[in-house]
């Protein structure tokens, strides 16, 4: 580079020629550097998001399991045999006779 500038100072090579010779190479190098940086950054981000996704997936699975367990518990608590036992023993309820059932018509 210094040789080229020296030559230019001596009035040998015009600036346009220098720019024409060096700039494409410089741009190409810069572009490659940028692509490299972007690629590495994206890979780092992908891995980091992979960890995050993995954490969220585990959390989601755990919540789904909890939800399933709760649904099961609810269904168990609503089993007719249990409801009848609770209604009869704890609440003192009895099955109404035919005469005690009123049908409401529209």
């Amino acid at each position: 580079m210094s040789v080229v500038i020296e030559a230019r100072n001596r009035g040998g090579i015009p600036l346009s020629v220098i720019l024409g010779e060096i700039l494409p190479a410089a741009l190409a190098v810069s572009l490659l550097a940028c692509v490299g940086i972007v690629h590495v950054t994206s890979r780092v981000l992908v891995v980091s998001q992979g960890y995050e996704l993995s954490r969220l997936d585990a959390q989601s699975t755990e919540l789904t399991r909890d939800n399933d367990r709760l649904k099961l518990e609810l269904a168990t608590l609503k089993a007719p045999a249990r409801l009848e036992a609770v209604a009869r023993t704890r609440l003192g309820m009895v099955t109404p006779s035919s005469a005690q059932v009123f049908h409401v018509t529209k």
Partner: peptide, 29 residues
């Protein structure tokens, strides 16, 4: 540690079908 770099599969895609019966649980009881 698990790293999910390729995304997560929809759990619904693996779930079996739901079967609904004509049974009425109160009458069954």
């Amino acid at each position: 540690r698990k790293v999910l770099t390729n995304g997560v599969e929809d759990p619904l895609s693996r779930q079996g079908a739901a079967v609904t019966l004509t049974i009425d649980r109160h009458l069954q009881y």
